[in-house]
Simulated scan of single mutants.
Amino acid sequence: MTVCRDCCCGSRTKHPEVDHDAQLDGLRAALEPVHRVRPSLCLDVCSQSNVMVVQPGSAARRRGARPVWFGLVLDDAVVGDLVAWIRSGGPGVAELPAVLELSVITPPALSGR
């Protein structure tokens, strides 16, 4: 899981009601060491902060699974739903719960690459 923590995501100025450090610590406590949780610089979807990207496992990726991007992850309930989905297999393994579909966003275009 990649957790954006740059200009907007993780910003107390933009989201003062969210304890961003506790959110990241909670994800790590719930998922590691089985699943890696890593913060990143800006993922270029600032209007949807806080952004998190769940990567499929290598076997699921070989079967065609792709990363799933989530935006507006500001609520502990959404984080809990993400953790449960990842623990059950995540992209390409477990069906995405309907409640999480509401948080799925389109990743930024990879222009110029």
Rank of each mutant, 00 (worst) to 15 (best):
H35G: 04
V73I: 08
D21K: 11
H15K: 08
D21P: 06
G57S: 13
A30W: 02
A59E: 08
A77F: 03
G64N: 06
V53F: 03
V53C: 02
R36P: 04
D19W: 05
P33S: 00
T13M: 06
G64R: 09
E32I: 06
P16L: 10
Q55T: 09
A30N: 02
A29K: 14
G57L: 10
S11C: 11
D19Q: 08
G64A: 04
V73H: 05
P16K: 10
P33F: 00
G26F: 01
W69C: 03
A30Y: 02
R62H: 10
S49D: 02
R63S: 09
S11F: 14
V68Y: 01
A60G: 06
L41M: 11
V68C: 07
A60M: 12
A65N: 05
C46W: 00
H20C: 08
V78I: 11
D44C: 11
R36S: 11
C4W: 08
C8F: 07
Q23W: 06
A65G: 04
R63P: 06
C4A: 04
V45D: 05
H35P: 01
L74A: 00
A77W: 07
D75I: 02
R36L: 11
P39F: 03
L24A: 11
R12Q: 12
R12I: 10
D76L: 14
V51H: 04
A59L: 15
R5L: 12
R66E: 13
C7I: 12
A60H: 05
R12T: 12
V37G: 04
G64T: 06
V73E: 00
L31H: 08
K14E: 07
S40F: 03
P67S: 11
L31E: 03
T13L: 14
S47N: 15
L24R: 09
R66A: 09
G57Q: 07
L43S: 01
